[in-house]
Lab assay of single mutants.
Amino acid sequence: HSHMSHTQVIELERKFSHQKYLSAPERAHLAKNLKLTETQVKIWFQNRRYKTKRKQLSSEL
C-alpha cells in the first residue's frame, strides 16, 4: 500500500469535485501528472465515491 502525498490528494480531490467518474484516458493522464499508477487513481476514486455515498445515506437518516 503506497502513501499519497498531501499534494496528490489535493489534486485528486479537485478533480473529483468536477467529475466523479474518469474515463480511462483521463485516468491515465491524471496518474501521469501526479506520478501515481492508474490503479491508484482508480481505487482512490472508487473509495471516494463510496465515502460520498455513505455520507449522503447517513445524512438522510
Results as ranks from 00 to 15, higher is better:
residue 1 H to N: 10
residue 1 H to Y: 10
residue 1 H to C: 15
residue 2 S to N: 10
residue 2 S to F: 14
residue 2 S to P: 11
residue 2 S to L: 13
residue 3 H to W: 12
residue 3 H to I: 08
residue 4 M to T: 03
residue 4 M to W: 05
residue 4 M to G: 02
residue 4 M to H: 02
residue 4 M to Y: 08
residue 5 S to L: 05
residue 5 S to C: 08
residue 6 H to M: 13
residue 6 H to K: 12
residue 7 T to W: 15
residue 7 T to S: 12
residue 7 T to L: 13
residue 9 V to F: 07
residue 10 I to T: 09
residue 10 I to L: 12
residue 10 I to F: 09
residue 10 I to E: 12
residue 11 E to Q: 10
residue 11 E to N: 04
residue 11 E to P: 02
residue 11 E to C: 14
residue 11 E to D: 03
residue 11 E to H: 05
residue 11 E to G: 09
residue 12 L to C: 05
residue 12 L to F: 02
residue 13 E to V: 06
residue 13 E to D: 03
residue 13 E to R: 05
residue 14 R to V: 11
residue 14 R to A: 09
residue 14 R to S: 07
residue 15 K to L: 11
residue 15 K to W: 14
residue 16 F to Y: 15
residue 16 F to L: 03
residue 16 F to N: 01
residue 17 S to R: 14
residue 17 S to Y: 07
residue 17 S to I: 08
residue 18 H to M: 14
residue 18 H to E: 15
residue 18 H to W: 05
residue 19 Q to L: 10
residue 19 Q to N: 10
residue 19 Q to A: 07
residue 19 Q to E: 04
residue 19 Q to R: 10
residue 19 Q to Y: 06
residue 21 Y to S: 04
residue 21 Y to M: 03
residue 21 Y to K: 04
residue 22 L to K: 00
residue 22 L to H: 01
residue 22 L to F: 01
residue 22 L to T: 01
residue 22 L to S: 00
residue 22 L to V: 04
residue 24 A to M: 05
residue 24 A to H: 08
residue 24 A to G: 11
residue 24 A to I: 09
residue 25 P to V: 12
residue 25 P to T: 14
residue 25 P to H: 13
residue 26 E to F: 01
residue 26 E to T: 04
residue 26 E to G: 02
residue 26 E to I: 04
residue 27 R to Y: 12
residue 27 R to V: 15
residue 27 R to P: 00
residue 28 A to M: 07
residue 28 A to H: 10
residue 29 H to I: 14
residue 29 H to E: 15
residue 30 L to V: 05
residue 30 L to Q: 01
residue 30 L to D: 00
residue 30 L to P: 01
residue 30 L to W: 01
residue 31 A to Y: 01
residue 31 A to Q: 00
residue 31 A to K: 00
residue 32 K to D: 06
residue 32 K to R: 12
residue 33 N to L: 15
residue 33 N to D: 11
residue 33 N to I: 15
residue 34 L to D: 01
residue 35 K to C: 14
residue 35 K to H: 09
residue 35 K to Q: 13
residue 36 L to D: 00
residue 36 L to C: 05
residue 36 L to F: 01
residue 36 L to S: 01
residue 36 L to I: 05
residue 37 T to R: 02
residue 37 T to W: 02
residue 38 E to G: 02
residue 38 E to F: 04
residue 38 E to D: 07
residue 38 E to S: 05
residue 38 E to Q: 06
residue 39 T to D: 12
residue 39 T to P: 03
residue 39 T to S: 08
residue 39 T to C: 15
residue 39 T to N: 11
residue 40 Q to K: 02
residue 40 Q to Y: 04
residue 40 Q to T: 04
residue 41 V to F: 03
residue 41 V to R: 01
residue 41 V to L: 03
residue 41 V to M: 02
residue 42 K to F: 09
residue 43 I to K: 08
residue 44 W to D: 01
residue 44 W to C: 03
residue 44 W to E: 02
residue 45 F to L: 01
residue 46 Q to P: 03
residue 46 Q to Y: 09
residue 46 Q to T: 05
residue 47 N to S: 07
residue 47 N to P: 00
residue 47 N to L: 11
residue 48 R to W: 04
residue 48 R to V: 05
residue 48 R to F: 04
residue 48 R to Y: 03
residue 48 R to N: 04
residue 49 R to P: 01
residue 49 R to G: 02
residue 49 R to C: 07
residue 49 R to V: 03
residue 49 R to F: 05
residue 50 Y to V: 10
residue 50 Y to I: 14
residue 50 Y to M: 15
residue 50 Y to N: 14
residue 51 K to N: 09
residue 51 K to D: 10
residue 51 K to T: 08
residue 51 K to A: 13
residue 51 K to W: 12
residue 52 T to R: 09
residue 52 T to E: 15
residue 52 T to L: 11
residue 52 T to Y: 14
residue 53 K to M: 09
residue 53 K to G: 09
residue 53 K to W: 06
residue 53 K to D: 14
residue 54 R to W: 06
residue 54 R to P: 09
residue 54 R to M: 10
residue 55 K to A: 12
residue 55 K to V: 09
residue 55 K to W: 05
residue 55 K to H: 06
residue 55 K to F: 07
residue 55 K to S: 11
residue 56 Q to E: 13
residue 56 Q to G: 12
residue 56 Q to I: 08
residue 56 Q to W: 10
residue 56 Q to D: 11
residue 57 L to S: 12
residue 57 L to I: 12
residue 57 L to T: 10
residue 57 L to Q: 13
residue 58 S to F: 10
residue 59 S to W: 05
residue 60 E to D: 14
residue 60 E to M: 06
residue 60 E to H: 06
residue 60 E to K: 06
residue 60 E to W: 07
residue 60 E to F: 05
residue 60 E to V: 04
residue 61 L to Q: 10
